[in-house]
Design a protein around this nucleic acid. Structure first.
Lengths: 109, 109
DNA sequence: TGCGCCTATGTCGTATCTGACATATGCTCA
DNA sequence: TGAGCATATGTCAGATACGACATAGGCGCA
């Protein structure tokens, strides 16, 4: 399903802003990645705001520290489903999720 | 991962409103389901507004008619990832996704 | 009635995602 | 320096979501 481009992109250091038109990304691909980035960033924000370590959050999610790290890194192997579950487990409401999506990750460079 | 309750819920005829506190759903589970319902409904709206059949959309997504049907039914076997990709393929922007999430599926009964 | 077209549902083999583990790096404090 | 904690990265077996196919039901039109 062509995760390759996305994988390459997200792999290292691309947690900022509009990853958009950086490589040959269709608008749809770009929007999807930006959404994921926004959610992963929002997750880190919420976790730290709650004073939890990745390990602590992992316990709450019945997952593992390494996976939480990958969630926050928007690793290509984590699904949006997982990100949403994590956010909701941290007390986010749908409207919070929505606003984190619109407010986009950080702002285009 | 306890998909059972959700599965049971979504399985038949639960595409309306706040499925929320219907069975023993944690707030997190409820929020997740509502999000999925909102997205699936938004997908159907967009597709029909675009005058496309499920089969036509499936072709565009390189998927199949049956999977599109399941997407719109918020079938437990479709991921939020897939719903988002479909929405973005139909030209939705992140802010559209966000607003469909906040506006919730239909309205609580 | 029968013929298209659209949508729904169930199943299957395969691809992808998951939690868990190991291990590495970085930081703070003594 | 080294111990203790937080985070990052790679890998793997098992779980789950995928596209595809078959098939059924509904609706309109001849």
């Amino acid at each position: 399903m062509k995760k390759t481009k996305r994988a390459a992109l997200e792999a290292h250091g691309w947690r900022v802003g509009s990853v958009a038109d950086f490589l040959e990304l269709t608008p749809a691909e770009a929007a999807f990645i930006e959404t994921k980035l926004a959610l992963s960033q929002s997750l880190r924000d919420r976790r730290t705001a709650a004073g939890l370590s990745q390990a602590a959050l992992a316990r709450r999610l019945r997952s593992s520290q390494s996976r939480v790290a990958k969630m926050e890194a928007a690793d290509p192997t984590v699904s949006v489903d997982l990100l949403l579950r994590a956010l909701y487990a941290l007390g986010a409401r749908p409207r919070d999720v929505a606003s984190s999506i619109t407010k986009r990750a950080v702002a285009a460079a």
